[in-house]
């Protein structure tokens, strides 16, 4: 497998992520149990959505201590591609692979809807994939309200690390932030679910260029036939 999808107890978008990468984009993907090591030869890792460890204590707080996380940390340190979606984003923030934290939506309720997002055009990979200025992606979360202190925020904005912004804002997230990347540009995290917008029965196909942008280094390094 080239793309590993980490399965924690309570992950529930692991199948969806695998399906979108394997059957829609056409890269070999597989699920890896959180107690197992990250397999050799993996070029990208997706930390999928769900309720890892029931979201007990805080979203992502317990998953952060899973055995696989040390492998993931070194994989990211070596420049490996990592994408956290929804609960995966929360786990990456908890583990320090991405800055900031996600707290309860300001409406205090879970929100599941097709969300309009503004694409930040500062991301080269997004530009190569010719992302539209405005996208629609499904969101489904109760704790997607991004928080970071002023210093971190200033850095994020100055380094063009914000990927996507809500328009309008469904959860009170600061600076309307829906997704970010790390400074090195290899670790992505976002609350919206690109894997739920890749097939003709989905509300739209806007997730496809987002996933392809993330997987770009793999798509370039190995000429894979795209089935989409």
């Amino acid at each position: 497998m080239k793309v590993a999808i980490i399965q924690f107890p309570g992950s529930n978008c692991d199948w969806d992520a695998e399906h979108s990468v394997q059957n829609v984009i056409g890269l070999p993907a597989g699920r890896v149990w959180h107690k197992d090591p990250l397999p050799e030869g993996v070029e990208a890792v997706i930390v999928p959505g769900g309720f890892s460890f029931g979201d007990y204590l805080r979203c992502g707080a317990i998953a952060r201590f899973s055995p696989i996380m040390s492998d993931l940390q070194s994989f990211a340190d070596q420049g490996g591609q990592v994408l956290g979606i929804c609960n995966g984003f929360q786990i990456l923030c908890e583990s320090g692979l991405l800055p900031g934290a996600l707290v309860r939506n300001d409406c205090m309720e879970f929100r599941c809807l097709n969300q309009s997002l503004k694409v930040e055009d500062s991301n080269e990979r997004f530009n190569t994939e010719a992302l539209a200025a405005q996208l629609t992606l499904p969101i489904a979360h109760g704790e997607g309200n991004y928080r970071a202190d002023t210093e971190v925020l200033t850095d994020l904005e100055a380094n063009n690390q914000v990927l996507l912004r809500y328009a309008p804002n469904p959860n009170g997230s600061i600076n309307d932030i829906a997704g970010i990347r790390n400074q090195a540009g290899n670790v992505y995290g976002m609350m919206p679910h690109p894997e739920r917008a890749v097939e003709s029965h989905h509300p739209c196909l806007d997730g496809l260029p987002v996933l392809r942008a993330f997987l770009q280094p793999l798509l370039q390094s190995s000429p894979v036939q795209l089935s989409a």
Binding site: N12, C13, W15, D16, H19, S20, G49, E109, F110, R111, C112, L113, P138, A140, H193, E195, R196, E199, H201, H202, P203
Partner: peptide, 16 residues
């Protein structure tokens, strides 16, 4: 009501 329900998980939702 239903915006509080995740109706899109499992990638199958066709008519919301």
């Amino acid at each position: 009501i239903w915006k509080q329900y995740d109706h899109m998980v499992m990638s199958g939702c066709t008519v919301e």
